[in-house]
Write a protein that binds this DNA or RNA. Structure first.
Lengths: 332, 332
DNA sequence: CTGAAAGCGCTTACAG
DNA sequence: CTGAAAGCGCTTACAG
């Protein structure tokens, strides 16, 4: 910028005005400065300007995802990117892999880089660590799961309602022995889905049968094994509610291995690619990660614009996508 | 930092030394400074330090992907993130959606934010625009596709060889009428795959039959329609080489709709989730986006460390994953 | 071992 | 309309 000013024979401030499109520079000087800019290939340094700028904004935000490589996180990230682009803001992406320490480390790194805001899919179990930063002006929105020990904006799926819809769908097909196959109960969304499952069964007058509940499954293989075991037990389920993506995949794989995919009904929570091309096609309660991401980003930018209304939790509805596997009737 | 120095009763430089873990500060002063840091909740400002620092590095890099939401891009992004983390570097992610102007705009934005390096999956057809920045010290590595009109490092898949392997596999099963269903020929990787297809056929003494080549397909639906049309033509193919992810999905969907998925062989280029759970499971030539991303990032960080050896293009091999659809024999 | 002065590239708050 | 001085939060290059 100094070089541009020297070449154009003007003051530093005049170059700054031209570079930022500020009004009040004569046409003649504007042209001279522009010419010098082009000639030197000058590129403004946003990081320097944000340092001095009154609001201190860097025009960057960070997302802490579960794992960019999984479709849910990727769709959420893309939605955040699209909203950020409308605001001329760049997005850092990072994966915490369900590791609370990693989440904290990533948040700290984002803060050191002075992001304006953070969108976090919680891995940690205590978000109090963000309180001081927030007081210092950082905007934070939680996505997919609510924060703990911190009052903040959050955008989540209707987990309990979605689970209820899934189980009701199986009940309507005539099933009475419906298994729940799910992730760690310590994950808030997983707990909500299990609660929904229990609530739907209770509403139908069915007691809880713990032999039909399998939780704590952390991989496709673990889910497949759990389903295989369920199928082999004395009084097996006639239908499965699989409470998450990878678990649905494991369940389908186990049913195929046992050649029972056309006998045992399945409704999965969360949609996945190719679900409609499987045989049978898989009925799911679909979440809407794009809408979750977009909504979270919109809330974030509202806060950055100064909105100081009370924090709120927005719930994004799920939708039942009927494809075949969930409509298999129980054996006569 | 000024506040910390005041509270600890030391000079600014001493705080700087403690914050950066530089040696040569007495134990006593270190303790006093540390206490002040904790008490004030001081967080160093990386963006300010990089401004003054000798090397000017910001400890950030940017990736311009096709679209974070697709599995290939997402896996690549994740691999870049993992390598960057080892170097204490944060990663911006952005999607160009095959739009060259968007790629340029994103690169310009990253440069304004003073990233140390860029990993680009090319959408533009001329990368000369990066030459001045590179001279100014920016590191750039291209992934998945080579750059044009710019000498630079690139990491790509063995597209031609992979296509040859796919077609040879179908030839070995006895097929003679093998269709090519692919994306825009203007995409360099797509052109390579088509060339590989032609080369493999020629090597088997089979002439080119243009009625079996469908290109320019930009969506799942377009691919499905093209395959439906192929199946209806007078002398239909007995096997399909689908040259990309979404096209394979469309082809499988069209075959299922025609109930011919067990009669017409398919080998796809690029693996996809659930390929092994389809009926028949889909044989593919798998790319390795994780390795592409990791390799590109490693090259980038080598350059940032000062490696000035000649630019090179690294080729990541593909692998044939035999699952069923590619082993269907031609009708007797 | 410690710290005062200068400066990174820019914007702010003025004065002309 | 134009620009010189001060300062954002830090590191560099010194001097003690």
């Amino acid at each position: 910028m100094r070089d541009v000013a020297a070449l154009a024979g003007v003051g530093l401030k005049t170059v700054s005005r031209v570079a930022n499109g500020e009004p009040g520079v004569s046409i003649e000087l504007t042209a001279r400065v522009q010419k010098a800019i082009d000639q030197l290939g000058y590129q403004p340094n946003l990081t320097a300007s944000s340092l001095r700028r009154a609001d201190g904004k860097t025009a960057t935000v960070g997302t802490v995802l579960e794992n960019v490589a999984n479709p849910f996180s990727a769709a959420l990230q893309r939605a955040v990117e699209d909203v950020a682009r409308e605001h001329g803001v760049l997005v850092f992406a990072a994966s915490a892999d369900e590791n609370g320490d990693r989440e904290r480390a990533l948040a700290a790194s984002f803060i050191a880089h002075r992001v304006d805001g953070l969108i976090i899919v919680p891995a940690a179990h205590d978000h109090g660590y963000l309180a001081p930063e927030r007081r210092a002006g950082l905007a934070v929105v939680f996505a997919d799961r609510p924060p703990r020990f911190l009052d903040a904006d959050a955008v989540v799926s209707a987990n309990r309602e979605g689970a209820i819809a899934a189980v009701r769908h199986l009940l309507a097909a005539g099933h009475r022995r419906i298994a729940y196959v799910g992730d760690l109960e310590s994950i808030q969304t997983a707990a909500e889905r299990l609660a929904g499952y229990r609530e739907a069964l209770a509403a139908a007058g069915l007691g809880a049968d713990d032999s039909l509940v399998r939780v704590g499954l952390r991989s496709v293989d673990a889910a497949a094994e759990a389903v295989s075991a369920l199928l082999r037990q004395p009084d097996p389920p006639t239908a499965l509610f699989t409470a998450q993506n990878l678990i649905t995949e494991g369940a389908v794989s186990a049913l195929q291995a046992a050649r029972r995919q056309h006998e045992v009904a399945v409704v999965g929570f969360d949609d996945f690619p190719m679900a409609d091309l499987l045989d049978p096609a898989v009925t799911v309660v679909a979440q809407d990660p794009t809408r979750i991401g977009r909504t979270a980003a919109e809330v974030l930018f509202r806060r950055l614009r100064g909105d100081a209304s009370p924090y709120e939790t927005l719930v994004v509805p799920t939708s039942l996508v009927v494809r075949g596997s969930g409509e298999i009737p129980p054996p006569a």
